[in-house]
């Protein structure tokens, strides 16, 4: 298909979104990323049964933490797609990039509150 998606998206491969711990996401924000999204399998189609559902709950939890610390819960999101939906992969990358762009750079970088 050779679909293109925004080059600012850095892919971190994990065996399953169920592997994504809240600390992984928090550490990414600590290190200055502007947004994080998880691309998991379609709900009900997890090879490990509930990995993507767990990831979904964790994303919700992290949204709360990001709200608490004042950088906003919209910077993290969960998407679901199957391995054959290349179109959707590109589309989600585009959507999240646009969202983060409209939010502006993460305030963590360089202490924008100061």
């Amino acid at each position: 298909m050779r679909l293109s998606y925004p080059s600012n998206v850095k892919v971190v491969k994990v065996p399953c979104t169920g592997r994504v711990d809240i600390l992984l996401i928090l550490h990414a924000f600590e290190n200055g990323v502007d947004g994080v999204y998880l691309a998991g399998c379609l709900e009900g189609e997890c090879h490990f049964l509930k990995g993507n559902l767990r990831a979904k709950k964790r994303v919700q939890y992290v949204k709360g933490l990001l709200e608490e610390v004042g950088i906003g819960g919209e910077r993290v999101e969960m998407f679901n797609m199957s391995a054959s939906q290349g179109q959707r992969f590109a589309q989600c990358a585009q959507e999240m990039t646009e969202r983060v762009r409209s939010l502006g750079p993460s305030p963590v970088k360089g202490g924008s509150k100061k």
Binding site: L26, V108, G111, S112
Partner: peptide, 9 residues
């Protein structure tokens, strides 16, 4: 850490 980094302190 995120909080204080954001505050630039």
């Amino acid at each position: 850490r995120i909080h204080w980094k954001t505050a630039g302190e």
